[in-house]
């Protein structure tokens, strides 16, 4: 579970934000304005942002500050967008990277 932290003993309370809606892999979800794509998905309990292009292993955020490029998603048809650096916007269409067919590897077999 990835819960929002509304109150905090030292930091100010989270000022509940405007709700916005967006889609991830065709599913309509809602988040707060000010969320990154990564936190918007975490708040919806979605951690897997893509699957490794060759092995198909699931990947989520690792560094959360733009260095590792693990969080790449496709946003409104633009591939390779870092989910941890990009704010989610109303009606954004986000899709996650999939394992690519590997016709030349492993004798051409193509299974997960």
């Amino acid at each position: 579970m990835n819960k929002r932290i509304y109150t905090h003993p030292i930091l100010e309370n989270l000022s509940t934000n405007e709700e916005i809606s967006f889609s991830f892999n065709s599913e309509t979800l809602s988040a707060y304005k000010g969320d990154t794509i990564a936190t918007a998905l975490l708040a919806n309990q979605i951690r897997t942002l893509r699957y490794h292009e060759e092995s198909g292993s699931p990947r989520g955020i690792y560094c959360n500050i733009g260095h590792c490029f693990e969080c790449r998603v496709t946003v409104n048809d633009y591939p390779g967008i870092r989910a941890c650096l990009t704010l989610v916007e109303e009606d954004m269409v986000i899709t996650s990277g999939k394992k690519l067919p590997q016709p030349l590897k492993h004798g051409g077999e193509e299974n997960a």
Binding site: C68, E70, G80
Partner: peptide, 8 residues
């Protein structure tokens, strides 16, 4: 040699 340029 991947996308992150070896940063990690």
């Amino acid at each position: 040699m991947g996308v992150c340029g070896g940063r990690s």
